[in-house]
């Protein structure tokens, strides 16, 4: 007799996730057996960056297992250093991140160009563990160090006309070789609606894994919006502008029918060229189901109440 069980199984039941999480150990064990020489070294404690003082926020820590530091820092989309995943880690070392200044302008009471130290000074840092879902169907879990963007916005007092926040990445082709080719319309621009920018989950990050951001991850200051596709989380920010009009964002300009302004993680709305239903968590074998708003629906879905998310993708 064929006994059929209604499928209440999840992907995790199919294959033990702990086994997959230990993929590297297994592979390295195999490699060590295969290669008597054994060129592989175990990961080192501490990652060589300047350590930051911060307060952990267990209430804002995803329960998911962290993605390895080495994966977080060697598998990057940062087209300013090249369009493949490995180039940023290879080439970003040359980027000068000190001194660094950020221009704050547009519909704001206290515009100006500020040294990074002055931007950061009043803000206490905290650690938040967020899922990051790339539009290319892979994801990571990263312990960011940063502070809420809302706190910074309040400090500079946007006017009542400020409906959007526009962010711009550094343009410096001498140090960012990817900018020497017109792959995208440089400099990179991203934006948020004011309520998205003020949302308590929206983070300005200065570090990860307890240390200052490696350059390839967007040093010295980047945005992290965990419920949106990764390209919204703009790196190496030099300008924050408050606007009345919706900003013209870089990927939207490059392919308007593929990348919307909102870019909320949404398994129900396909990218025109691929499904967004599933994702590969880096370090895992089986794919996971992608969650609406990357699993942050409870906190952010109300921002989009009444909006047609197929239209405003």
């Amino acid at each position: 007799m064929l006994i059929r069980r209604k499928s209440d199984l999840t992907e995790a039941d199919v294959t033990d996730p702990a086994w997959y999480a230990r993929r590297r150990e297994f592979l390295q064990g195999t490699a060590a057996l295969l290669l008597a020489a054994g060129g592989l070294r175990p990961a080192q404690a501490g990652h060589g960056g300047r350590a930051l003082q911060y307060r952990p926020r267990p209430d804002l820590a995803a329960k998911d297992a962290l993605t390895d530091f080495s994966d977080v820092t060697t598998y990057n989309n940062f087209y300013e250093f090249g369009t493949d995943k490995a180039s940023p880690a290879e080439l970003a070392g040359r980027l000068t991140t000190d001194p660094w200044s950020v221009t704050i302008d547009g519909e704001v009471a206290r515009p100006g160009t500020y040294a990074l130290e002055d931007i950061l000074k009043p803000h206490g840092l905290e650690e938040r563990i967020y899922r990051l879902r790339c539009v290319e169907r892979w994801s990571m879990v990263i312990p960011w160090i940063g502070f809420p963007l809302a706190d910074l916005i309040r400090r500079f007092e946007p006017t009542s006309r400020a409906k959007y926040v526009e962010f711009t990445t550094l343009y410096r082709p001498e140090e960012m070789p990817g900018q020497r080719r017109a792959v995208l319309d440089w400099p990179y621009v991203e934006g948020l609606r004011m309520d998205e920018a003020m949302h308590p989950l929206t983070l300005l990050a200065v570090g990860l894994y307890g240390e200052v951001l490696p350059n390839q991850n967007g040093a010295p200051l980047r945005l992290v919006v965990p419920w949106k596709y990764g390209f919204k989380s703009i790196k190496s920010i030099v300008r924050i502008r408050f606007t009345e009009q919706m900003p013209q964002t870089t990927w939207h300009k490059a392919a308007p029918h593929e990348y919307g302004f909102y870019a909320n993680v949404n398994p129900a709305v396909d990218h025109p060229r691929w499904s967004q239903k599933r994702e590969r968590r880096i370090g895992e074998f089986r794919k996971r189901k992608t969650l609406p708003f990357n699993g942050y629906a409870e906190q952010v879905a109300h921002l989009y109440a009444g909006m047609d998310l197929r239209r405003f993708f």
């Binding site: 592979l27 880096i282 370090g283």
Partner: peptide, 12 residues
């Protein structure tokens, strides 16, 4: 692949 030299996303 078996010596983990294909980066963070070896399947891709």
């Amino acid at each position: 692949f078996f010596t983990d030299r294909l980066g963070a996303n070896p399947f891709e």
